[in-house]
């Protein structure tokens, strides 16, 4: 049951946070903390396979592999949305640059 709340809540939160126009600087910090946490967790999960089963039972999932799959899907979703957001920003900057360049060129012609 707990896992359902975590997964659905997580999906909605990712969608909301990453599609929002304003991106507070804390987002980057959160991403970095997540990375710092994920690496040791990954090491532990590989070194002691039993820990995934233990963690799975904590959130109400039967098998450790299922929990891993869920985590993987969520990470993938987050990465995709973050990339989408980043691309969108870059596209906006590119439009601004292209426009500025076109206007500068025309100003040179007028001179």
């Amino acid at each position: 049951m707990l896992i359902k709340i975590l997964l659905i809540g997580g999906t909605l939160a990712f969608g909301f946070l990453t599609l929002r126009e304003r991106q507070p600087a804390s987002h980057q910090a959160i991403r970095r903390i997540a990375l710092l946490v994920l690496v040791p967790v990954g090491v532990v999960a590989v070194a002691f396979p039993g820990t995934t089963v233990w963690a799975a039972h904590l959130v109400g999932v039967q098998r450790g592999t299922d929990l891993l799959l869920y985590t993987f899907v969520m990470t993938f979703l987050f990465t995709t949305l973050a990339c989408y957001q980043r691309l969108h920003q870059v596209e906006r900057h590119l439009v601004t640059l292209t426009r500025e360049l076109a206007l500068r060129e025309s100003a040179d012609q007028l001179r």
Binding site: L94, V95, T98, R99, L101, A102, L103, E105, S106
Partner: peptide, 11 residues
């Protein structure tokens, strides 16, 4: 005026 890269009609 020339857009160096295609940006769409709105742009």
């Amino acid at each position: 005026l020339r857009h160096a890269v295609n940006q769409g009609q709105g742009a």
